[in-house]
Simulated scan of single mutants.
Amino acid sequence: MNTPYEINTEGNRIVYVKAVNVANLPHEVRTQVGDLDHLYAVHDSDGQQLALVADRKLAFVLARQHDLSPVAVH
């Protein structure tokens, strides 16, 4: 599940990857994720969500494909 939005970080190359509990997401998103318990969000330094994907590894790959430096948030 990739975001349909263009990723724009306006010069800041660090993004943050964190697990997101599906139960805390809007209904529209929950209906699209099937039986997953959590997804992984990629956020910029201001906290804006740039992407939401089903797999942690995919979140890191997505960030790197956009020349961003992903950092895990626990």
Results as ranks from 00 to 15, higher is better:
Val42Gln: 00
Leu50Glu: 01
Val42Thr: 06
Gly47Tyr: 06
Val29Pro: 03
Pro26Gln: 07
Asp37Ala: 08
Ala54Arg: 14
Val42Lys: 02
Gln48Tyr: 12
Leu39Arg: 06
Asp44His: 02
Arg30Asn: 03
Asp44Leu: 02
Leu50Lys: 01
Asp44Glu: 06
Val53Leu: 14
Leu36Thr: 05
Ala51Pro: 04
Thr31Tyr: 02
Leu25Glu: 15
Val53Lys: 03
Gly34Trp: 04
Ala51Gly: 12
His43Gly: 00
Tyr40Gly: 00
Val53Pro: 04
Leu36Ser: 13
Pro26Thr: 05
Val53Met: 05
Leu25Ser: 11
Leu25Ala: 04
Ala51Tyr: 09
His43Trp: 11
His43Asp: 10
Val29Trp: 05
Gly34Asn: 00
Leu36Arg: 15
Ala41Glu: 15
Asp44Asn: 15
Ala51Phe: 07
Val33Trp: 04
Ala41Val: 04
Leu52Ile: 14
Asp46Val: 04
Asp44Trp: 02
Ala54Ile: 12
Ser45Trp: 05
Gln32Cys: 08
Val53Ile: 06
Val33Asp: 04
Gln49Arg: 14
His38Thr: 06
Ala54Asp: 15
Asp46Trp: 06
Gly47His: 07
Asn24Ser: 05
Ser45Gln: 13
Glu28Leu: 06
Leu50Cys: 02
Leu52Pro: 07
Leu39Pro: 05
His27Asn: 09
Arg30Leu: 04
Tyr40Ala: 02
Gln49Thr: 10
Asp37Asn: 15
Val53Arg: 03
Asp46Glu: 15
Glu28Trp: 03
Thr31Gly: 03
Leu50Val: 03
Asp46Cys: 09
Val42Arg: 00
Pro26Phe: 09
Asn24Ile: 02
Val53Phe: 04
His43Ala: 10
Glu28Ile: 03
Gln32Glu: 11
Glu28Cys: 03
Gly34Leu: 08
His27Glu: 14
His27Gln: 14
Asp35Glu: 12
Leu50Asn: 01
Val53Tyr: 00
His38Phe: 11
Val29Lys: 05
Ala54Met: 15
Ser45Cys: 06
His27Trp: 11
Asp37Leu: 11
Asp44Tyr: 01
Val53Gln: 07
Val29Leu: 13
Gly47Asn: 09
Ser45Gly: 05
Val42His: 01
Ala54His: 14
His43Asn: 12
Glu28Thr: 13
Leu25Phe: 00
Asp37Arg: 12
Gln49Tyr: 02
Glu28Gly: 09
Pro26Ala: 03
Ala41Gln: 13
His38Gly: 11
Val33Phe: 11
Leu50Phe: 00
